[in-house]
């Protein structure tokens, strides 16, 4: 990835503890435009917490966070200070998040799930929002599902709708937290395919995943986390041929 590309996400020295237990210890990470970064690591290593801190679902204990050079949070006197709400709302528009269990709105149709936030939050005219949604549905192979309700869809279809819902707000960067781990193996493929297509279109993405082969194929960079720290970081080739004992052991588990 050429360094000339703009830095979209900058995380510096973030810390997060739950009940006195440090879950993230001094994590730094920057992501440039068009980059696809996968985060791997054992259960409990803090991958979700990292994503939740970056998407501000969790408040950090320390460190700083900025999107496109705009500071969302910074450290002052050993504490993490967030910028005023109004500013945060603006910064929020830069990113989207796809959840493991989709979290679609069950009382809204697929179409409404996708257009409601653009219309309500961004004040996009309804007609334009619908056109945008139809394009996304076509792209994600869901054109015939616009009027369906989430409960009528398979897990894979629901996850694709939730990706469409996130994309409808035209984020600059999209986070995924184990987007396929709630899915049956035969449904996993259709979601991974969608993500790969997004990668081809140079969507900037940070993906927490246990799908090693997928991470290898899709990523520009892979981050290996363990016990709240980034243990190793590099291109897929570097990670898959790492000299780091822990990384090799972890990846080995998935290849057996």
């Amino acid at each position: 990835m050429p360094d000339s590309k703009k830095i979209l996400l900058q995380i510096d020295h973030i810390r997060k503890a739950f009940d006195g237990v440090e879950v993230l210890k001094d994590i730094s990470l920057s992501v440039r435009e068009g980059e696809v970064v996968s985060v791997i690591g054992p259960s409990g290593s803090g991958k979700s917490t990292l994503l939740r801190c970056a998407t501000m679902l969790e408040t950090m204990d320390g460190g700083s966070l900025s999107y496109l050079g705009e500071q969302a949070a910074f450290e002052e006197d050993g504490k993490c200070v967030y910028v005023p709400k109004k500013k945060l709302r603006e910064i929020h528009k830069n990113f989207g998040l796809v959840f493991q269990n989709f979290n679609l709105f069950p009382h809204y149709s697929v179409m409404k799930n996708i257009i409601d936030a653009p219309v309500t939050v961004d004040h996009v005219p309804k007609k334009e929002a619908r056109e945008r949604a139809e394009k996304l549905l076509l792209q994600l192979g869901l054109s015939d599902k616009a009027d369906a309700y989430p409960c009528q869809l398979s897990g894979g279809q629901q996850q694709r709708v939730s990706i469409a819902r996130a994309l409808a707000l035209q984020p600059k960067i999209l986070f995924f937290d184990e987007p396929t781990s709630a899915l049956d193996p035969e449904l996993t493929g259709e979601v991974l395919k969608v993500i790969k297509e997004l990668a081809k279109e140079h969507m900037t993405m940070i993906i927490v995943t246990h799908e090693m082969q997928f991470a290898r194929e899709v990523s520009d960079r892979i981050i290996f986390m363990e016990q709240g720290v980034i243990q190793a970081e590099g291109t897929p080739d570097e990670i898959f041929h790492s000299s780091n004992e822990r990384v090799r052991e972890f990846i080995g588990k998935f290849q057996s």
Partner: peptide, 11 residues
């Protein structure tokens, strides 16, 4: 998850 999804979408 419903609150979190809404929050990330900017509601």
């Amino acid at each position: 998850g419903q609150y979190e999804a809404a929050k990330v979408l900017g509601y």
